[in-house]
Computed example of a mutant assay.
Amino acid sequence: MYRRRNRFPFKILFFVMAFSFVLVGFFIGYYRMGPSHEEEIPFVNENENIDDRDEEMLSQEDLIPLEDENNTSVTSLQDSIGQETKIIYKTFYTECENTIEEVLTPISSMIGLNEEGFTEYLQRNNLLFSVESFSNDEVVLIQSKNAICPQHYNHYLITEKDGNIAIYHINNRGDKILIETTSIPVSILPQVDQLKLQKGILRKTKEEAYQLLEDYSS
């Protein structure tokens, strides 16, 4: 009897080899085209503090310019007027060399202004005050007046008039009313007293004013 010889399965072998080449090519291509490990893990200096870098980035974000309602460029780190800011008004009276302070809360149109914007606000509203200091906690304004402060109303002023010593009464409105011009010349007094009389010497009562005249005439 004739026995049929088994043939070697060349077709199966061909498909196995072809599949193997495709699989190997896939992995080689993926490795070459895929992201490298160096790109996946950024390089970090061992001496660099990550928290410091985060704080630096935050500080740069805080400096992003903002625009207030008056188109004045500010930054979030600048001081500005808030609801709790104290507005201190100081008035210096040149004739008595006294300073009167008044502390008020800011009005709504002041809220949010920085120093530059607030200075423009004072000029726009024709206020005679200038900014002496500016912070979130308090804003100090100052002005000068060639007058006598209200604390010295109803006082007596001893000063110079036409070369002689004179006495004035300061009424409730701050007006100076001449009471008497004496015959005592200012020139006979020491230089220190002459300078004092040029500025004016204040006394609370008429008796104190005339007592000073007696001291100068003696």
Rank of each mutant, 00 (worst) to 15 (best):
G34T: 00
T119I: 15
T75M: 11
E69H: 10
Y93T: 01
P42I: 01
E69L: 05
E116N: 14
V139T: 09
M33I: 02
S20Q: 04
G25Y: 07
R53A: 05
V44F: 11
E101N: 09
V24H: 11
I28G: 03
I142H: 08
N71G: 06
E102G: 04
Y153E: 03
V22R: 06
E84W: 04
I107Q: 12
E55Y: 12
Y89D: 15
Y89T: 14
D68V: 13
E56W: 14
L63D: 03
Q78S: 09
L113D: 01
C149V: 02
T94Q: 12
F43W: 03
N114L: 15
L141S: 04
E97P: 06
N45R: 14
Q60I: 15
I28E: 09
S80L: 09
Y121H: 13
P35N: 02
Y153G: 08
N125Y: 07
F14G: 03
L104T: 10
F43D: 03
E67S: 14
A18C: 02
V22F: 07
F134W: 00
E39W: 03
L127R: 06
T94W: 09
F118W: 02
H152R: 13
E116I: 11
F43Y: 13
G82E: 07
N47K: 15
F129H: 15
S36L: 06
T85A: 02
P42D: 03
F14M: 12
Q83H: 11
M17H: 12
E56Q: 15
C149A: 04
Q143I: 07
C96W: 10
M33G: 06
L58A: 15
F21V: 14
Y89Q: 14
I88H: 02
L104N: 12
Q83L: 13
N126W: 11
E138N: 00
G112Y: 09
I64N: 07
L157T: 00
L23D: 06
L63R: 15
N125D: 07
A147T: 05
E40L: 12
F26Q: 09
I87M: 01
T94M: 10
C96I: 01
F43V: 01
I142Q: 04
G25Q: 08
K86D: 13
H155Y: 10
E39D: 07
R53D: 05
E115M: 12
G25T: 12
L63E: 11
L141Q: 06
D51T: 01
A18N: 08
V22Y: 11
S20N: 07
V139N: 10
V22K: 12
V74F: 00
D137S: 13
D137W: 11
N49R: 11
A18W: 00
T99L: 03
V139H: 02
F27R: 11
E102V: 06
E84F: 04
Y153D: 00
V103Q: 05
V139C: 07
Q151T: 11
N71V: 11
E69S: 10
E38R: 00
F118Q: 08
L157D: 06
L63N: 09
F134T: 02
L141N: 01
G112K: 11
S108Y: 14
D51M: 07
V140K: 01
N136D: 13
V140Y: 02
R124W: 00
F129K: 15
I81S: 00
E56T: 14
E132V: 12
L63W: 12
N47V: 02
N98C: 15
I111V: 10
Q143V: 06
S133M: 05
F43M: 10
V139G: 04
E46K: 15
N126D: 13
L104R: 13
F19V: 06
V16M: 13
